[in-house]
């Protein structure tokens, strides 16, 4: 039921969302989140790297966990890999459900796990130099809101204590 994609080329979140919404006419609501590269933040470029054997299978497992937890009519997860410019979309998560609470919660859950427990590595270029980015303390804290059976590859309690 979940549609999960690892995109290596730019995608159009508006077109994807319109298509997804049209495909789920029985859903009473669709909640979506689009993440994009911040402009005007002295970031010249953002690069996302992935590891083929783990990244897409992990995204599918995450989507399945969300679909098992909330009554969804549909779930769409698209995440970019590669080099991105300011303003370009990084991620789109859309959840369609009969009632809004499930859609809000599922989209929120998937985003929290994409930020700090999915197989992506992110670096940004500032003043011509690349810097690797690790999740912030609040990214790990956000995760703590969900109790799941998903294996969390990185010990969030340990990471938080180092903040």
């Amino acid at each position: 039921m979940a549609e999960v994609r690892l995109a290596t080329e730019p995608f159009d979140p508006g077109a994807e969302l319109a298509r997804f919404t049209a495909a789920h006419p029985t859903a009473g609501g669709v909640v979506s989140f689009t993440g994009q590269v911040r402009a005007g933040d002295s970031v010249e470029a953002l690069e996302l790297r992935h590891y083929g054997p783990l990244t897409l299978p992990g995204m599918r497992e995450l989507a399945d966990a969300a679909a098992a937890r909330w009554p969804l009519a549909g779930l769409l997860v698209i995440h970019r890999s590669g080099e991105l410019r300011p303003g370009e979309p990084i991620v789109l998560v859309a959840a369609a459900a009969r009632h809004r609470r499930a859609a809000f919660a599922a989209a929120d859950f998937v985003m929290d796990h994409l930020k700090s427990q999915s197989w992506f590595w992110k670096r940004e270029k500032r003043a011509g130099t690349w810097h690797w980015i690790e999740p912030r303390g609040e990214d790990y804290a956000d995760l703590g809101r969900w109790k799941t059976d998903l294996e969390e590859p990185f010990d969030t309690a340990h990471a938080q204590s180092q903040e």
Binding site: Y51, P53, L114, S116, K122, P135
Partner: peptide
């Protein structure tokens, strides 16, 4: 053998 440091997506 892949070595995987802390991740950061989204």
């Amino acid at each position: 053998i892949a070595f995987l440091p802390p991740v950061s997506g989204g």
